[in-house]
Amino acid sequence: MGLFSEIWNSVKNKNRSIDVSGYSALFSAEASLGIKSVALEACVTYLARLISKGKFVFKDGNSIIASDFDYALNVKPNPNQTASEFKIAMVKKLLNGELLVVKDGDRFYVADNFITHYSLNGNSFSNVFINFDENNVVLSDSGLSTQKYFEKVFTQGVDCFHLTNDNIELQKYIDSLWKDYGKMFGILITNQLRVGQLRAKIDIPVNSKLDDDERKKLQRRFATTLFEKMKRDPVVFIPADGPSKSSYEEISANKSASLQNQITDFGNLRKVFIGEVAGLLGIPPALVLGETANNSENLDLAIEAAAIPLGNKLSEGFTSLLIRKSGYKVGKTLEMTGFKTINILDRADAIDKVGSSGVIKINEVREAAGLSPIEDGDRIIMTKNYTKEGENSENS
């Protein structure tokens, strides 16, 4: 339900005396949208940065091979973005719902807007807009135009690929629980605004007598006005019944000052939001919150549960564009690796054992360590202590 729908429903509500103006719905929605944006942006940005460290690698079997698209995917996919910016844009689009990547020659773009045409033979996409700068929007005869507009129609698997976010639980969570947390956050803000508020009683003599109906109307008017002022004004005068002459009595702010400062509650509520979203994305909340305890283990969990699955989806999308069916049959693949930088000095013993035992090739060891392949690296080396008597120490 949208913001204005909430306001309209609050106005139509039978109990109109509570909030005819719709201010409560507006206030709650504003608080909800604010903290929702912070939590989602924190978690999605962290995951996007993690995946941006990955590198697309073309392989023939277990051997890394060169490709004409190495530069585009790992250095500069288009004139306006680096590879890292491009990967971050892809992840954010995908996690927000859907992603369309279009291929224009040897360039790749993330679409901002498009129209989908569904077909059993492959969906097609028209009216594809690309916008690298949200401020770069101009008004033309056809309406708002972005920086780049493709007049051609793109076809799935031919010159584009389209992915959707299959994390249904995340979408359900966003739709059902943000409103409840927003109400809680709105209450915290309201309470915080009242901390230290100066209030005073004031008596105003009334010479004429009022009948019961007029007195009730006046009380309701005072109550509404007073409630609004207490929410926004630093100093509030409270009408009170008293003697016939005017008087003023200041209420000490000590009582208000004694209320617990709820700024810390904001931080705790933010942690609740981030924890929920991070859990649904497969990221340990401690990573997003910047906590250093068990950081290495948490990073391994995030890579295994979140980065690798998303990396596989992106790799499959590019595979459908860049590798033909005939090539795939003979073992050509496209993978995304290198999400974690490994300190080779700390892992020297493990690297030595796995490399010298003849289990995997040199370039495979380098790939696992986050290093680029070398020209003569697609061979196996086995040291003498791992070989049988009479065998060569090096097998290629």
Rank of each mutant, 00 (worst) to 15 (best):
G2C: 02
F4N: 09
E6A: 08
S10Y: 01
K12M: 02
E30S: 11
A31T: 12
I35Y: 10
S37C: 14
V38M: 05
S52D: 08
F56M: 08
S63Y: 02
D68L: 00
F69E: 12
D70M: 14
I88G: 15
M90W: 05
N96D: 01
G97K: 04
L100P: 07
D104M: 03
D106F: 09
T116Y: 13
N121M: 09
N127F: 13
D141R: 11
G143C: 01
L144N: 11
Y149L: 12
V153H: 11
C160V: 10
Y173V: 02
D180C: 15
Y181G: 06
L193H: 07
D203K: 15
P205G: 13
E214Q: 10
R215A: 11
R221C: 11
S256R: 12
S256T: 13
N268K: 07
K271H: 07
G275Q: 00
V277Y: 07
V277R: 05
P284Q: 02
A286T: 13
A286C: 10
N294V: 01
N298L: 03
A302F: 00
I308D: 00
L321T: 00
K325V: 12
K329R: 14
T333Y: 07
L334S: 03
T337D: 13
G338K: 13
F339Q: 01
I344Q: 12
I344E: 14
A350D: 08
I351P: 01
K353A: 01
I362E: 06
R366Q: 00
D376H: 15
G377H: 04
I381W: 01
